[in-house]
């Protein structure tokens, strides 16, 4: 059994209007997503801004209440948990946020921030908690003497390390990493990613690694899911996806990755138009208005996510 199994997860945000706030439509931020995550595995999730990556990550953790679907974590459906059960579950399923500036309470010291999960779930003495916080700070490359300082005294990279220490505090099984390095300088990104990889090996962690930078995802992921307008259009192993992208959208995304070789010329696929509104998604395949390989059928029928073999899934009529 997989550690995490997501089935047909949907999150629709109602669009309200007028003084009576009548619901006049809905934004289909996440529109039927299914995938699995194994112990110790990293699933990369990529896609443009607004494709629902972040909403998906938060819905799985129920930081946003999903509209429908099932999320089995360690054999239990998270979406059915109530009150205390949900709170207890959070000990083993954590999240690292994108913005290391807004995700730490400016009025709490680093020690208080990292000890918060410990106080919520364990009953330890003051000194036990302090020891644990010191150990965590050490583990993420900060000095325990910095425990009494406040977030504003740290740099972006250091603050992200504090966020990682907080997520690790309770030895979780899985962590949703919501673009954990996109707010950091490039030189710091590599350090933080290496830290995440080390921690994964050490603690056998599973990651859902959300990003919009394909090269970052390639480095860290075992499998990669490509999202477009709230759906997964292609899901394959890291290698298969990068070497043999099948979906036209994936191909276009990959062609946009810069290659560090000035002499190399490759075919750049430029997509026409903008991402359609998720309030009125296109009929059939949501990608068809921008697809270079579209056919008549694409605007009428929505393609299912089908297995091409070797766990390479793709949602396209062409294949």
């Amino acid at each position: 059994m997989s550690l995490l199994e997501v089935q047909d997860l949907k999150k629709y945000f109602p669009v309200k209007k007028g003084i009576l706030s009548r619901t006049i439509g809905e934004v289909r931020a996440v529109d039927g997503i299914s995938f699995t995550l194994e112990r110790g595995e990293t699933l990369g999730v990529v896609g443009e801004s607004g494709c629902g990556k972040t909403t998906m990550g938060r819905s799985i953790l129920r930081l946003i209440e999903p509209t429908s679907g099932q999320v089995f974590f360690n054999g239990r459906d998270i979406l059915r948990l109530r009150g205390e059960e949900l709170r207890k579950m959070r000990a083993s399923f954590q999240i690292i946020f994108q913005d290391p500036f807004s995700s730490l309470d400016p009025r709490m010291s680093v020690g208080q921030i990292i000890s918060e999960p410990l106080r919520n779930h364990l009953s330890g003495s003051r000194s036990e908690i302090k020891d644990r916080v010191a150990h965590l700070l050490n583990r993420v490359g900060l000095h325990p003497s910095q425990m009494g300082r406040y977030p504003h005294e740290f740099s972006g990279g250091q603050r992200q390390r504090i966020g990682i220490a907080r997520a690790l505090a309770l030895n979780p099984l899985a962590i949703v990493c919501d673009e954990p390095v996109s707010a950091l300088d490039v030189s710091i990104q590599a350090q933080v990613i290496n830290l995440l990889v080390e921690l994964q090996e050490e603690m056998n962690l599973s990651y859902i690694f959300i990003a919009h930078d394909l090269s970052v995802v390639e480095h860290i992921s075992d499998r990669v899911a490509v999202m477009y307008l709230g759906r997964i259009v292609e899901l394959a192993s890291d290698q298969a996806l990068y070497e043999n992208p099948v979906h036209p959208y994936t191909q276009a995304l990959l062609s946009a990755v810069p290659v560090p070789d000035p002499d190399m010329r490759k075919k750049r696929i430029i997509l026409e138009g903008d991402v359609p509104s998720p309030i009125h998604p296109p009929t059939g395949c949501a990608f068809h208005p921008r697809c270079p390989a579209r056919r008549n059928r694409c605007s009428r029928e929505r393609p299912e996510l089908l297995d091409l073999g070797n766990g390479h899934f793709v949602a396209c009529h062409e294949k």
């Binding site: 953790l61 946020f97 995700s103 309470d105 918060e116 779930h121």
Partner: peptide, 16 residues
């Protein structure tokens, strides 16, 4: 604010 969401994510109760 994200830090409030973060507090919920680490299992803090509403009162806290």
């Amino acid at each position: 604010q994200v830090y409030v969401e973060a507090a919920r994510a680490v299992g803090s109760k509403d009162f806290r």
